[in-house]
Amino acid sequence: MASDFRMPGNVKFGVGAHKNLPEEIEKYSPTKIAIVSDKGVANAGLVKKLENILEQTGVPIFTFTEIVGEPTFKLVETVTHKLREENCDLVIGIGGGSALDVAKTAAALLAQEKIAHFLSGREQIGPRSTPCILLPTTSGTGSEVTMNAIFGDEEQGLKRGIVSPALLPDLAIIDPELTVSCPARVSASSGVDAFTHAIESYISVRGTPLTKIFAEKAMRLFPKYITRAVHNGTDLESRTGMAWVSALAGVSLANAGVGAVHALAYPLGGKFHIEHGVANALLMPYVFEKIGKTCTDELVEVASFLQLGDYSQHPNKALDAVVHYLLELLDTLNLPSTLKELGIPEDSLPALAESASKVDRLLANTPYKLTEEAIKEIYENAYFGKVGVLVK
């Protein structure tokens, strides 16, 4: 089967890379620049820092930083209309995945008339005519290198993704220096989110030798840098390592896709506003305990990437090693390991399973056919912390 492999038009990586922004902007000859970000990044001083750098260009700037928490489709529509009113013809997104998803989607929709049709998923967004530059301030979502964007659907009470090549930016500037101010909790959840992208795309039914190269490298780097990046955020070496993890995993995700972990995380975000990275991190061991039986060979390789041991002679033990690594990771990074800890009502699990079972695009990418009942069992295990014969 033929497959495409897509990346942004250009990726500029390195400490201090964001300082080259003025010369990059000259290539697009904009008349008005939009900066899209969130309150946290603005409060950290990064938006002001970006504005100061852009003042060198002499181009007028419009700044939108009203993104709080997980963005909704309604917010995307609001931002798109606002940028249109301001006559912005170049969009720069700076922040975590939420800000970048809003920025690149708004840029893609600026020239489109029927915004609602694209946001509903009825139509794929066509070619983007407004230039877009993305600068991540976290290492996790990989939004700066993907053609995916995730938003809350308030009507359906879940998160839903839209996918289009138009969501790939013209330029991704990945500067580890911009992630130093990222809080420990966000560094942990976004970092494990990146690992989720790597491992899920590695076992994806759409995976190819090319996507696996990116996913493998991300998984090899991850254990080397994640703990240092979370517990010693000013360590630029670990921040650089995690920036590579995020970018590499993001490229693999963009082309091979993710699966059941993300499918089960969406309703948690939509109904209970659990952060996307936290939901993925928590669900990962419980999902893999269920689906791992169908990707034993890949998990033998994953165990090797993570330096958990050589299970080539005992492949069935690789799943156990990977699942327990993922559980220990939650403890090491001070992330919750049960839905009960998050205050999710036990009686909501059947409704969560029903919602997750409808995320067909991602479930179809998983090498295990998950029924609604099987999904409910995963949620129950995640609620009580049950893994195999162990109860946490």
Rank of each mutant, 00 (worst) to 15 (best):
S3E: 13
D4I: 14
A17T: 09
A17K: 12
A17I: 09
H18K: 13
N20I: 03
P22W: 11
E23H: 10
I33D: 11
D38A: 03
D38T: 04
D38K: 10
K39I: 12
V41N: 03
A44L: 11
L50A: 06
I53W: 00
L54S: 08
Q56V: 02
T63F: 05
T63W: 07
F64C: 01
E70G: 02
F73G: 02
L75E: 09
E77T: 02
H81T: 11
L83W: 11
L83D: 05
L83Q: 08
E86I: 05
E86K: 14
D89N: 15
L90T: 08
V91H: 04
I92S: 07
D101W: 01
V102F: 08
A103N: 08
K104G: 04
A108E: 05
L110F: 12
K114M: 12
K114I: 11
K114P: 05
E123N: 11
R128A: 10
S129P: 00
T130C: 15
P136N: 10
S139Y: 03
S139Q: 01
G142A: 07
E144W: 04
M147L: 14
M147R: 14
E155N: 13
L158C: 11
G161F: 00
I162K: 02
L167W: 08
L168I: 05
P169A: 05
P169V: 10
A172G: 06
I173P: 02
I173C: 05
I174T: 11
V180P: 00
V180M: 10
C182K: 00
P183T: 03
G191K: 07
H197I: 02
A198W: 04
Y202P: 07
S204R: 09
V205T: 15
G207N: 12
P209H: 10
P209L: 12
L210Q: 12
T211A: 10
K212N: 14
R220A: 03
P223E: 00
T227F: 06
A229H: 00
V230F: 02
H231M: 02
N232L: 05
S238D: 02
R239P: 02
G241M: 03
G241F: 04
M242H: 04
W244D: 03
A247W: 07
G250M: 03
G257Y: 04
A260I: 12
V261P: 05
L264Q: 12
Y266C: 10
Y266H: 15
G269H: 10
K271F: 00
H276A: 06
A279N: 06
N280D: 13
L282S: 07
L283E: 12
I291G: 13
E301G: 00
A303N: 04
F305M: 13
Y311F: 15
Q313M: 01
L319R: 14
E328L: 02
L335I: 04
K340E: 14
G343C: 08
P350G: 07
S355Y: 03
A356R: 01
K358Q: 14
P367Y: 13
K369G: 02
T371W: 05
E372A: 11
E372D: 00
I378Q: 04
Y379E: 01
E380F: 07
N381Q: 13
Y383N: 08
F384D: 06
F384Y: 15
V387M: 08
V387A: 14
G388P: 08
V389T: 14
K392F: 11
